[in-house]
Simulated assay, not measured.
Amino acid sequence: MKILVADDSRVMRQIVIRTLRQAGRGGHDIVEAQDGQEALDLVRSEAPDLVLSDWNMPEMNGIDVLTSLRASGSQVAFGFVTSEGSEEMRARAAQAGAAFLIAKPFTPEAFGEALAGIGL
């Protein structure tokens, strides 16, 4: 499986990748994006099976990436890993087509549950 991790913080991308390993999801191909536009471009060129995206990023935020992907017909599994975890944001994410929203700080168990919930 190929996973795209999109976050403007290199440290946070590494934490997400480490947490995936701790959740038993190691050994996958990982692609990293440092902003929303790069994430959108990499989904198109790399065809990941899953996108894990921050909400607030430069160039294009995560919700705009998701909206653009869905508008182009992409049904790639998409989840948010973000510091924003309000009910309003969860509703916006779900309405746009996100499979889940994991709020920071997060645990390997939260990743495991979210990924199991979408069959990954």
Rank of each mutant, 00 (worst) to 15 (best):
I15S: 11
G24E: 06
S68H: 12
I118M: 14
V65P: 00
A94H: 10
K2W: 03
F78K: 13
R10V: 09
V5P: 10
V43A: 02
H28A: 15
M1P: 09
R25I: 04
A47E: 13
K104E: 01
P105S: 09
G85A: 15
K104H: 04
E32Q: 11
G119P: 04
G112M: 05
S68L: 02
R18H: 10
S45C: 03
V5M: 04
M89H: 11
E113P: 10
V51G: 00
H28C: 15
E88G: 09
P105C: 03
V31Y: 15
R13D: 09
I30D: 09
Q22W: 07
L115I: 13
A93F: 05
E38F: 07
P105G: 09
V11D: 07
D29G: 12
D35V: 07
A116L: 06
R18I: 05
R90D: 02
R44C: 06
K104V: 03
Q14D: 09
E88K: 09
D64Q: 10
S83K: 12
L69S: 01
Q75V: 13
Q14M: 07
T19G: 11
A96L: 02
G36S: 05
M1W: 00
G73A: 11
A71N: 14
G26S: 10
G117K: 13
G27M: 10
L66Q: 02
G27C: 07
Q37L: 12
W55E: 08
V76R: 09
H28M: 14
L69H: 04
V76W: 06
F78H: 12
L50E: 04
G119T: 05
S68F: 02
A39F: 08
P108E: 01
A96V: 03
V81G: 13
R21V: 12
D8P: 07
G24K: 04
G73Y: 13
R90I: 01
V65R: 05
L40M: 02
L69K: 01
V65T: 01
T107D: 06
A103D: 05
P48C: 01
V16D: 14
I63N: 00
K104P: 06
D64W: 05
E38C: 10
E32T: 10
E87F: 07
L66G: 00
L40W: 11
F100P: 05
M12R: 06
I30K: 09
L120I: 10
R21Q: 13
T19E: 14
L50W: 02
A116I: 00
S72H: 12
K104R: 13
V5T: 03
A23Y: 06
Q14T: 06
L4P: 04
A98L: 01
L50Q: 05
R13N: 08
A114M: 09
M60H: 01
A103K: 07
A99Q: 11
